[in-house]
Amino acid sequence: MIHETAQIHPSAVVEDGVVIGANVVVGPFTYIASNAKIGQGTEIMSHVVIKGPTIIGKDNHIFPFAIIGEDCQDKKYQGENTRLVVGDRNVIRESVQMHRGTTQDKGMTLVGNDNLFCVNVHIAHDCIIGDNIIIGNNATLAGHVKIEDYAVLSALSPVHQFCTIGAHSFIGGASVVVQDVPPYIMAQGNHCKPFGINIEGLKRRGFKKLEIRAIRIAYKEIYRSGKTISEVKPILENMAKEYPSIALFTRLIESSTRGIIR
């Protein structure tokens, strides 16, 4: 179950049944429970705890004192066989915590690819994390939170249960997120409020001028027109026929259970 090219420090504790892929490195005093699977090329540094059932993909880098796949902190959890699934090429810095899911949701916490989790980030049960996301030091996600691709959640920012942070959005430091954050926008504060479009982020990711202009128009319809969300929604749906990026607005509005920040 352990590939012959894996490098495991003699002081590490790796239980029987662990699956470890090619060229994995396991540092000193790390503990990996029997129901964990580690993909090829992943580096696990010292004093890491990996429990499970947990699947970790390829080429991840896990720094000291991270705790991956631990039992969740939901009082309803009674030891059910839930999972954590982590994708590829993630950087998981010191003391990050990622907990498994609960049976009250899909039974799984899911982390995508190419993400950066800075020091002491907490990913609670049943969260869904997309790709190319940055979460700053000491930011904390409560249960059932969803963060979409390319979002940035800055340091010291907590996110309330069942909230969604939309794709390409930027949340400033020490913000308190208690409602859904639409895609593309910049937001900050306690409670978090919108402050325009994340223009520089969109430019870096190759958005064209006309697409950015359409996103700015959609933002004004939502936040500056004085219209209700039900009045704005058909306008956004019509815009999305010409500019597909606008569909991210309508999708989040339709799925929102907590409402969007205002």
Rank of each mutant, 00 (worst) to 15 (best):
V119H: 12
V119I: 12
V119P: 01
N120Q: 09
H122E: 01
A124K: 06
H125I: 12
D126G: 07
I128M: 08
I128N: 09
I128P: 00
I129C: 09
D131I: 12
N132L: 05
N132D: 14
I133C: 06
I133G: 01
I135T: 14
N137P: 08
T140F: 12
T140E: 12
A142N: 08
G143R: 04
H144A: 13
K146W: 08
K146T: 14
K146P: 01
E148Y: 09
D149R: 02
D149Q: 01
D149N: 11
Y150N: 12
Y150M: 03
A151H: 01
V152M: 07
L153Y: 04
L153P: 00
L153M: 06
S154C: 06
S154P: 02
A155N: 03
A155T: 08
S157A: 07
S157N: 03
P158H: 05
V159Y: 00
H160N: 03
Q161V: 13
F162D: 09
C163V: 14
T164M: 07
G166F: 09
A167I: 03
H168R: 02
S169P: 02
S169Q: 02
F170Q: 00
F170M: 09
G173R: 01
A174F: 05
A174R: 05
S175I: 08
V177H: 09
V177M: 10
V178S: 13
Q179S: 13
Q179H: 14
D180K: 03
D180P: 00
P182I: 14
P183T: 08
I185H: 00
M186D: 03
A187F: 01
Q188R: 08
G189C: 10
H191N: 12
C192F: 02
K193M: 10
K193I: 04
K193G: 03
K193V: 11
P194Y: 10
F195L: 05
G196F: 02
N198K: 02
N198L: 05
I199F: 10
G201N: 06
G201C: 07
R204I: 12
G206N: 07
G206W: 06
F207N: 01
F207W: 13
F207Q: 11
E211P: 01
A214E: 13
I215K: 09
I215F: 04
I215S: 05
A218Y: 04
Y223R: 04
R224C: 13
R224S: 06
S225G: 13
G226R: 12
T228V: 12
I229T: 15
S230R: 15
E231I: 06
V232P: 04
V232C: 03
K233N: 10
K233C: 05
K233A: 14
I235Y: 11
I235H: 08
I235L: 12
I235R: 11
L236S: 02
L236I: 07
E237Y: 05
N238Q: 13
A240F: 00
A240T: 11
K241W: 00
P244K: 03
